[in-house]
Design a protein around this nucleic acid. Sequence first.
DNA 1: GATCGCTATTTGTCTGACTAAATAGTCCAC
DNA 2: GTGGACTATTTAGTCAGACAAATAGCGATC
Lengths: 238, 238
Amino acid sequence: MAREGLSTSRIHGSIARTLGVAIVSGQYAPGDILNNEIDSSEQLQVSRSAYREAIRILAAKGLVESRPKTGTRVTERNRWSLLDPEVLAWVFESEPSEEFLKGLYELRMIVEPAAAALAAERRDDGQLERMRKALIQMENRTLATEAGQAADRDFHDTVLEATGNAALFTLSSSIGAAVRWTTIFKQRKRELPRDPMPDHWKVFDAIAAGRPDYAREAMERLVGLALEDTRAAIDPKG
Amino acid sequence: MAREGLSTSRIHGSIARTLGVAIVSGQYAPGDILNNEIDSSEQLQVSRSAYREAIRILAAKGLVESRPKTGTRVTERNRWSLLDPEVLAWVFESEPSEEFLKGLYELRMIVEPAAAALAAERRDDGQLERMRKALIQMENRTLATEAGQAADRDFHDTVLEATGNAALFTLSSSIGAAVRWTTIFKQRKRELPRDPMPDHWKVFDAIAAGRPDYAREAMERLVGLALEDTRAAIDPKG
DNA sequence: GATCGCTATTTGTCTGACTAAATAGTCCAC
DNA sequence: GTGGACTATTTAGTCAGACAAATAGCGATC
């Protein structure tokens, strides 16, 4: 994931990130109007054009809306592209609410089992091989390492991809981001995470065997257990 | 929907739309490098800054990636935010492939029944009232009118909202867009569309009664029938 | 009291110059 | 020849300052 810094290393990207975090964390409320471009860019010590490009980024993700005379205002939450990978990163940069985390898992619980079932019917050999390699890597390196976590994401990614559904696959970057951040959460509190491998292998076996129903069930169990672990990490008295 | 023109009425928005459509329609392939900013902005007869803002919008939606010396290149399809409402609009502006349409319905088929079930458990009275009003409006105006279609979208929107899940609700703009465009498709070919009201009322009744399983089933049937209608409209020999 | 038009404010657009990053190619050392 | 450091060049990135267009809100007019 060395690509990360690309957008944030440029001024417009880092300003977008700063403002984006401020917005999703509630520092600005929907309806609030940002200072005008001249004042804002002066405060942030950047040129007006760099600031404007940052605003265009935020507008593209539905966080703000600009019009002459009125200014740039924060839009209603329901217009935000919360599943956009960058927006998701901004959300996780400032301790997301437990409610939001729960919602993310609920989404995974809806999408991933169905995707696993479709993958069982449609996967090709190359995808199967990539899933196997990801799980082996995950087994060798464990979720405590960046490489192991990347392998985990690779596995879930490939399942989505194997559905052959472009719209569904789009969710993989969101789900991948969710997986990543919640894994960090789980690691942060030093709860002993349960061994995730058996559940993963069951999903793999069902997909390999071409059994949609088994794949759905196995994935349901996998996500469900991950949810429990995260819940336990957040609320230790669980 | 008078808001529509806001982003496209500005130069940066319309350039983004033009390029966006060209990209999602395959006129530029992933990996292709756009002309440099100076040449491009001259060709399009706009200033370099307006062109750059357009590129920032496309980059924010994952369609392109810029770096010094290399230039701006079209990214791989799997990085595109295909569920972003604007991107979706661009896709539908250039006759999406049947495969993509099928994928969109598959997504609805996964998400909406589950959402209906959750909505049956969590909806509040206000949401229920909005659903009822939307259906009455839909009944009075029919899907042949813009008002009727807006009511249809309102209904599906409110179901998503009633799940109380922000991440799920984000999909409503995508699903709403999908509903809108496929409705246009269905109307375009002059197939006599089946009366959609009975199915909608069944979903409503189940949600009102607080019966998750009924709601899920009813929504499954609703989306399934819509899929059939669309398929018939595209491929008249059925 | 309603309507129309004006004006001040804000974003939008333009121009042109300079900066910084990244590649590709050269040249040197070995 | 082969490897690696270096430099030239191309590109996006940033900056500054001016002018244009849109529009919300106010005020004059009827």
